[in-house]
Every structure is written in structure tokens, then in C-alpha cells.
Simulated scan of single mutants.
Amino acid sequence: MNASVGDRLHVHGNAVGQPDRSGEIIEVRGAEGGPPYTVRFDDGHTGLVFPGPDAVIETPAREHVHADR
């Protein structure tokens, strides 16, 4: 699992009644985009996360700027 700052982490609830959690990755502490990640969750909580198999990283579409030739 690799991520960049600005990607979103979604952690699926793994028990009945446990809601999914999602947030923005604000720091990548592992080598080459690997975990752990510092995540600012949508509820305002910030924490260090070592994502498990119940997590998905989504990369937002990035704008490409083309230089004039």
C-alpha cells in the first residue's frame, strides 16, 4: 500500500454497527509512500494509522499543467 499527501484513506468498519471512517493523509512516514500515515479524519480527529486489509487509499484526480513549447 502506497500513498501521497493529499490522498484519502477509507477504513471500512469491520464489525456490525461500526461505521466507516475516512480522512485526508497529511503526512507519509514510511519509505516510498508506505505506512504509517498521519491522517486527519473527517470528524476532526488526527492520528497515526497503520492501515490493514480493511483500508483503501483513493488518489484524487490531479490537474496536469503543460508547459508552453
Rank of each mutant, 00 (worst) to 15 (best):
R69E: 08
V39G: 00
R21M: 14
P36M: 13
A67G: 08
V28W: 01
R40A: 10
G52A: 06
E58P: 01
I25Q: 00
E24M: 02
G17C: 03
S22W: 08
A3G: 09
R69F: 07
D20Q: 06
A67C: 04
S22D: 06
Y37K: 06
H45A: 06
V39M: 00
R40P: 01
E24G: 08
G44M: 01
V11R: 14
D20P: 07
A31E: 15
N2L: 13
E27G: 02
A15V: 09
Y37I: 03
V49P: 00
V16G: 01
Q18R: 10
S22A: 06
V65T: 08
E24N: 03
T38Y: 02
A55R: 02
D7H: 15
V65Y: 09
P53S: 07
V11E: 10
I57K: 00
F50R: 13
H12A: 09
L9G: 03
T46C: 08
V65H: 07
P53I: 02
V56Y: 05
R62K: 13
V28D: 03
G13E: 11
R40S: 05
R21G: 06
I57T: 03
P53T: 08
G47C: 12
L9C: 07
G17M: 10
D43Y: 11
D54G: 04
H66V: 15
